[in-house]
C-alpha cells in the first residue's frame, strides 16, 4: 500500500493543504479567518476528496504556519521556516534564498540543501506584507490582482515616501488627487514595498538562486521591483502559495522514511479530523 503524506499550512490569510506520495496528488487553498481557522479540517477534507483518499490513508500529517498549534489532525507541528525551505528546494534544488511575502508577515530565509541556515521575519508591521497591498488597493478602488499588471505599464513610478501603511494610504490618496497617473502610483507603491522587504532580507547573506513565495509572488510588478532592488533575478514556483504545505508534507515523508530505514516505530499522535479548538 502506498504511503501518503499531507501538509497543512494555516497562514494568517490563507490555509493551504497538499497531499503527496511521489509527487503532489492534491492541493487546496482556502481562506483563513476566525471561522475558517477553526474549520481548517474542511480544507483538509476538500484535499482528501480531490485526491480520492480517506483521512486514514494519510501516513503522516505535518501542520505549519501561524495556526499550526492545536491542529487535532496533525502528527507534528513544524514552523513555516523549515517547511518553506524544504518545499522550495523541492521545486528549485539550487535555491539559496527564499523571500516569502505573506498576508500579514514577510520572511527571508537562507537555505542549504533544503535546510534553513538563517532567517529574518517581519511580523511587527503591516508595511512589508500583503496587508499593505490590500489597504492600498482598497484606497485606490482597484483589486489586489490588478496591481502587478498596472505597475508594469508605468514608465515613471511615483515616489511614495511613507513606510507606514496608514500614512502611505493617505499619501497615495493625496497623490491621486494631484493627478499622478494610477499606473505610476501603483508602481511607486510596489517599489516602496520592495524596498522595505529588501532591506529586511539584506540582513542575510543573499545568494542565487532567489525564490519568491507567498501571495506577494503572484504580483508580477512586486517580483520585478524586488528583483531590481536586490540585484538578483528571482524565481517563482508554479503555485507560490503551497510551498510551505509541500515542505510540511515532505518533512513528514522524511520522518516516515527515516523510521522505516532504521526499523524504528513511527511516532504519531492520536489524530482526528475535527474542528480546531480556538480559545
Amino acid at each position: 500500500m502506498s504511503d501518503y503524506f499531507a501538509g497543512i499550512d494555516i497562514g494568517s490569510t490563507m490555509t493551504k493543504v497538499v497531499i503527496m506520495n511521489d509527487g503532489i496528488i492534491s492541493s487546496i487553498i482556502g481562506p483563513t479567518g476566525p471561522e475558517q481557522r477553526r474549520l481548517a479540517n474542511k480544507v483538509m477534507e476538500n484535499a482528501l476528496n480531490q485526491a480520492g483518499l480517506p483521512f486514514e490513508a494519510i501516513t503522516y500529517l505535518v501542520a505549519t504556519g501561524y495556526g499550526r498549534i492545536n491542529v487535532p489532525f496533525a502528527d507534528k507541528q513544524v514552523t513555516e521556516i523549515s517547511c518553506h525551505a524544504k518545499g522550495v528546494a523541492h521545486f528549485f534544488p539550487e535555491c539559496k534564498t527564499i523571500i516569502d511575502i505573506g498576508g500579514q508577515d514577510s520572511k527571508g530565509i537562507t537555505i542549504d540543501h533544503g535546510r534553513p541556515t538563517d532567517f529574518v521575519m517581519n511580523d511587527k508591521c503591516a508595511a512589508g506584507t500583503g496587508r499593505f497591498l490590500e489597504v492600498i488597493a482598497e484606497a485606490l478602488g482597484i483589486t489586489i490582482q490588478d496591481l502587478g499588471g498596472m505597475a508594469l505599464k508605468s514608465n515613471q513610478p511615483a515616489q511614495i515616501s511613507n513606510i507606514c501603511t496608514v500614512f502611505a494610504e493617505q499619501e497615495v490618496v493625496a497623490r491621486l488627487a494631484e493627478g499622478v497617473p494610477l499606473n505610476d502610483l501603483v508602481a511607486g507603491i510596489l517599489e516602496s514595498l520592495a524596498s522595505r522587504i529588501s532591506r529586511m532580507v539584506n540582513r542575510l547573506k543573499v545568494a542565487n538562486e532567489v525564490v519568491i513565495t507567498g501571495g506577494g509572488a503572484k504580483n508580477a510588478g512586486l517580483v520585478k521591483a524586488l528583483s531590481d532592488k536586490l540585484g538578483y533575478a528571482t524565481l517563482v514556483p508554479p503555485e507560490p502559495l503551497i510551498t510551505g504545505a509541500v515542505g510540511a508534507a515532505l518533512l513528514g515523508k522524511d520522518i516516515v522514511q527515516k523510521a522505516k530505514k532504521n526499523s524504528l516505530p513511527l511516532e504519531r499522535k492520536k489524530r482526528s479530523l475535527e474542528e480546531i479548538e480556538i480559545l
Binding site: 521556516i81 540543501h113 538563517d118 532567517f119 521575519m121
Partner: peptide, 23 residues
C-alpha cells in the same frame, strides 16, 4: 510584545539551529 509571535520566532530559530547541525 506578542508572546505568540515571539515564540514562533524562537521555534523557527531552534529548528534552524537543528538543521544547521544536520547539514
Amino acid at each position: 510584545y506578542s508572546e505568540v509571535d515571539t515564540r514562533n520566532r524562537i521555534d523557527a530559530f531552534i529548528e534552524t539551529l537543528e538543521q544547521v547541525r544536520k547539514n
